[in-house]
């Protein structure tokens, strides 16, 4: 995925690295000195109580906010992002919690919004609605396995899982996508839709794209993520491997009770030893 294959001592170059990220809103420290590393084909979950700074962190990653301090590296190269466009340019895209869909428009219009293919007739650019429909159907099938019965209905009338698929299709349309961020992808979904959405996330991962998932649902987190990063009060409290950790342990870290209280550990082994 990283084109310049700089291999450091046999270790693979991380796709994404955030170092010492700090961000305040007025007097409020929303994010304090957070590090994050993400490798190709990994799914990282970020968990934490309300106001822990999760959304702020990923908004920094996607160029919506600029950090007060800290650096972001993509494939080892430092990047500066001052807008969503910048983040998309370096291969980072996001599906926000509300999905950022225009409910009244059908799936193809949403997938290509702001990026529509045109056909010129007498030099006037007309939207190529047919191509958008066909491409959307193809992208949906290839990336998410979702097939729309009718690509002309407003996305409002699609199921939650289908809407999620449309939002993902839209996000992965970015050329050379490296990191996909999803804020609360399973909130407000039923069990069936949740299963589908988790499958969508794995499908994206299987294409070699690294995925960051923010979620309050530890069950979903453990079902899909390779690693879990826990935030509290704007700080990174710890990071665990889902293979060697448990929901109880992570929950303890989230609320700061006995298990996670003193733990500013960042490796799964230390945390495992504590339990």
């Amino acid at each position: 995925m990283c084109k310049i294959g700089v291999e450091m001592e046999g270790e693979k170059q991380p796709l994404l690295a955030m170092r010492g990220i700090t961000k305040s809103f007025g007097g409020l420290r929303a994010v304090t000195d957070v590090d994050l590393t993400l490798h190709e084909g990994q799914i990282l979950a970020i968990v934490g109580d309300n106001g822990a700074g999760k959304s702020t962190l990923i908004k920094i990653l996607t160029g919506v906010y600029q950090p007060d301090a800290g650096e972001i590296f993509i494939c080892g190269a430092k990047v500066e992002m001052s807008s969503r466009r910048d983040s998309i340019r370096v291969g980072v895209n996001a599906v926000y919690q509300n999905l950022g869909l225009v409910d009244a428009l059908p799936a193809p219009a949403n997938v290509f919004l702001g990026n529509e293919p045109v056909r010129r007739i007498l030099g006037i650019p007309f939207l190529d609605n047919r191509r958008m429909r066909e491409e959307t159907e193809r992208i949906l099938i290839e990336n998410t396995g979702v097939k729309l019965e009718d690509a002309t209905v407003p996305t409002l009338n699609l199921s939650g899982g289908q809407r999620q698929a449309v939002a993902i299709a839209r996000a992965v349309l970015v050329a050379d996508l490296k990191v996909l961020v999803m804020d609360e992808p399973t909130a407000a979904l039923g069990p069936e839709e949740t299963r589908n959405t988790l499958a969508l996330i794995r499908a994206v991962r299987d294409r070699g794209i690294a995925v960051i998932v923010i979620s309050h649902n530890l069950e979903h987190v453990f079902a899909v993520a390779d690693r879990v990063m826990v935030m509290r009060g704007g700080r990174k409290i710890g990071e665990v491997d889902t293979a060697t950790s448990s929901g109880t342990e992570v929950l303890g870290m989230i609320v700061g009770s006995a298990v996670g209280a003193g733990a500013h550990a960042t490796t799964p082994s230390t945390l495992g030893a504590q339990q």
């Binding site: 109580d49 009718d150 009338n157 979904l189 039923g190 839709e193 309050h216 609320v255």
Partner: peptide, 23 residues
């Protein structure tokens, strides 16, 4: 867990009578 607030409002958004709904 802190996340039992999840309901299923979106699941009912099925494609019902799309053609008619449009008009």
């Amino acid at each position: 867990m802190t996340d039992q607030h999840i309901t299923t409002p979106e699941t009912s958004r099925m494609t019902r009578l799309p053609a008619l709904r449009r008009y």
